[in-house]
Amino acid sequence: MDVFMKGLSKAKEGVVAAAEKTKQGVAEAAGKTKEGVLYVGSKTKEGVVHGVATVAEKTKEQVTNVGGAVVTGVTAVAQKTVEGAGSIAAATGFVKKDQLGKNEEGAPQEGILEDMPVDPDNEAYEMPSEEGYQDYEPEA
């Protein structure tokens, strides 16, 4: 019985440690998101679009440190934060509304985080759909 109880105690310690790591990862992701939003706020009209992409990228980098179902929630929060940063930029006159959601080359930025393969159960990952990809044929 002692062996059984000791095993359960060790398992509990492992769960607590994993929860603490997840909590730490979420806190880091939130900190990076805040950094990115402050970065966007300090940019001029020309830099705002690039700044919004930076927020998304920093958040995406930190999301990889967070495991399990938390990833889905962090990704949703990050996307809403990026959308909010863009709205703030438009409201303050840093950028025109028609410039939001495009990178410096004018290509749409939507789907940055949505296409990231995420499995809350950590069982399997699927690649994003290939609808947006084109076949590449090298020139002879």
Rank of each mutant, 00 (worst) to 15 (best):
G41D: 00
K96F: 13
P120G: 06
G101C: 15
E105M: 00
N65A: 04
A30H: 00
I88M: 08
I112C: 11
V37L: 12
D2P: 01
Q109I: 09
D98C: 10
I88D: 06
A69M: 10
V71N: 04
A140F: 11
G25A: 14
Q79P: 03
V63S: 02
P117W: 03
A107F: 12
G31F: 14
K80E: 05
V66H: 07
K43E: 00
K45S: 06
M127S: 09
V15M: 14
T64F: 02
A17W: 14
Y39Q: 08
P128M: 03
V49S: 05
A19V: 15
K45D: 00
H50Q: 02
G67Q: 10
T81Y: 03
G25V: 02
G67F: 08
A78S: 08
V82D: 05
A124S: 13
T59I: 13
A85V: 10
G47I: 09
L100R: 01
N103M: 08
D121G: 09
P120D: 07
A29W: 12
G25E: 13
V16E: 04
V48I: 14
G68D: 00
G51E: 01
E35P: 03
T81P: 01
L100E: 13
K97H: 12
K60N: 06
V40W: 00
P138R: 07
L38M: 15
E130D: 05
V48D: 01
E104C: 00
F94L: 13
V15H: 01
E20Q: 10
K45H: 06
G93H: 06
D121A: 06
V118S: 06
A18R: 00
A56N: 07
T44A: 10
V37R: 01
G73F: 14
E131Y: 13
E61K: 05
V40E: 00
D121T: 06
V82F: 04
V15D: 00
P138F: 09
V70E: 06
T81W: 09
V40N: 02
K21Q: 08
Q24P: 05
Y125M: 02
L38V: 09
E57F: 11
V15A: 02
E114R: 11
E137G: 11
V16K: 01
V37Q: 00
V71A: 06
K12F: 07
L8N: 00
V3C: 09
A56F: 15
G73R: 13
G51N: 07
V16W: 05
A53R: 09
T81M: 09
Q24E: 05
K43R: 06
K43V: 14
Q99I: 13
E57N: 13
E130S: 12
Q99S: 07
K102H: 09
T33I: 06
K10D: 04
Q109A: 11
A76V: 10
A27T: 09
K96N: 13
K60L: 13
N65K: 07
K10I: 13
T22F: 02
D98G: 11
V70Q: 02
G41K: 11
K45L: 13
Q62R: 09
G93S: 03
E46S: 05
T33W: 15
G41C: 04
F94M: 09
A29S: 04
E131R: 02
K32N: 03
Y39A: 02
T75I: 15
D115Q: 11
T92E: 06
A30C: 06
E61M: 04
G101E: 00
A11D: 00
A11W: 12
T64E: 02
V49R: 13
G73D: 06
S9W: 15
A29K: 04
Q99C: 11
H50M: 15
T33Q: 00
V37W: 08
V52K: 01
S129K: 04
V40Q: 00
E105H: 13
T44H: 03
D2V: 02
A91R: 01
Q134T: 10
A56D: 01
Q99R: 00
Q99K: 09
V118D: 12
A19P: 00
T92H: 04
